[in-house]
Every structure is written in C-alpha cells, then in structure tokens.
C-alpha cells in the first residue's frame, strides 16, 4: 500500500516537472529541472527494485548530463526561441503513439509474473550456472563481463568514442590556444 502511494506521488511529481520543462523558456532552469527529474526517476527505479539502473540514472542523469548541458549552454544561448510552428500536429502524433504503446502493454505478462518469458528463457541458466561457469558471485557482473563480453566491449568503445568527441569539442582547442598565447 505504501509503495503504491509513493509510486503515485513520484509519478505526479514527474508529470509536473515534465510539463514545466516543456513550458519554460529559460534553459538554465530547464537544466535544473532535468536534474530533479533524474533524481525522481532514480527514486522510482529504487522503488521498482532496479537498484543498478537507479545507480546509472543518478550518475549519468543527475551528474554527467547536467554538466554536459551546462557546458552546452555556455557555448550557445540561455533562452529558448519561440517555436515557429503550432504544436498541434506533433501533439497528435505523440498522443497516437502513446495510445498505441499503452495498448501494446495489455499483451505483456503481469508485473513480476514468474511465467514471463524473461524469467523462463536464459535467466535460470545465468542464475544457477554462472557461479560454476564464470566464478563471479554477482550475476549481473557475470552476464555483462562474460556472457555478453563482446556486447559490453562494443558499448565501451561507443562511450569512449563519444567521450573523446565531446572532449575535443569542449576542451582541447582551448588548451592549445592558451599554450600558444603563453609562448
């Protein structure tokens, strides 16, 4: 019961923050509200017992993303321009897509159901065999680092490339300029 009430409160907060983000034109305030939104969704993930997802959401959403967006604001403008088109058609598209997605959830197995395909496919193998096959007590780590090792390597390469790109855009040129000024 208390979980239901907390879920309800957090979802209402999320809705309020999201609508405010859309309506505000001051992008700095929007970045602050994004931070709040990220903390809210991380709390929601903890309530759903997805602790590792909450961890990532807090580190990326509230930490890194806020700083990246502030750095972007420093390079661009702080106020959003008024939209030149009416938002009616995009609103219709979003509502239709949302309705389709909600309709699609009716075919999904019930939340937490033990008979759901995700619990009957390879998950039992991971849970029962990974201590013997891999030798790591944490199942999530065993799956990420061993069973899906190549997949994780690909992700790391993508993240590394993105990080190098962002650093090139933000930092390196300034440092070179400083050095040329000093010399």
């Amino acid at each position: 019961m208390i979980e239901f009430i907390l879920d309800l409160i957090i979802l209402v907060f999320l809705l309020v923050v999201a609508v405010t983000v859309i309506r505000l034109r001051d992008l700095f305030a929007v970045v602050m509200l994004f931070g709040i939104y990220s903390f809210l969704s991380a709390t929601f993930f903890v309530l759903l017992d997805a602790v590792d997802v909450a961890f990532t959401e807090a580190a990326v959403g509230a930490g890194v993303a806020t700083m990246l967006m502030l750095a972007t604001l420093a390079l661009t403008e702080r106020r959003e321009k008024r939209p030149t088109h009416t938002p009616l058609i995009p609103l219709m598209v979003v509502l239709a897509t949302g309705a389709l997605l909600v309709y699609g959830t009716t075919d999904m197995p019930a939340f937490g159901s033990a008979a759901a395909p995700v619990h009957t496919h390879v998950a039992p193998h991971y849970l029962y065999e990974s201590p013997k096959e891999i030798g790591i007590p944490n199942v999530v780590t065993a799956v990420l680092a061993s069973y899906r090792g190549f997949d994780t390597l690909g992700e790391v390469v993508v993240v590394f490339t993105a990080g190098v790109g962002v650093l090139t855009l933000l930092g390196f040129s300034r440092r070179e300029r400083d050095e040329s000024e000093n010399s």
């Binding site: 931070g35 961890f55 807090a58 580190a59 509230a62 502030l70």
Partner: peptide
Amino acid sequence: TYALINFISVIAV
C-alpha cells in the same frame, strides 16, 4: 553515491 553526485553537481552549476 547520490549525496556525492549532488554535491559535485552543485559545485559545477
């Protein structure tokens, strides 16, 4: 972790 991130974010902002 949240407490740490919150602290660092505020300093950055």
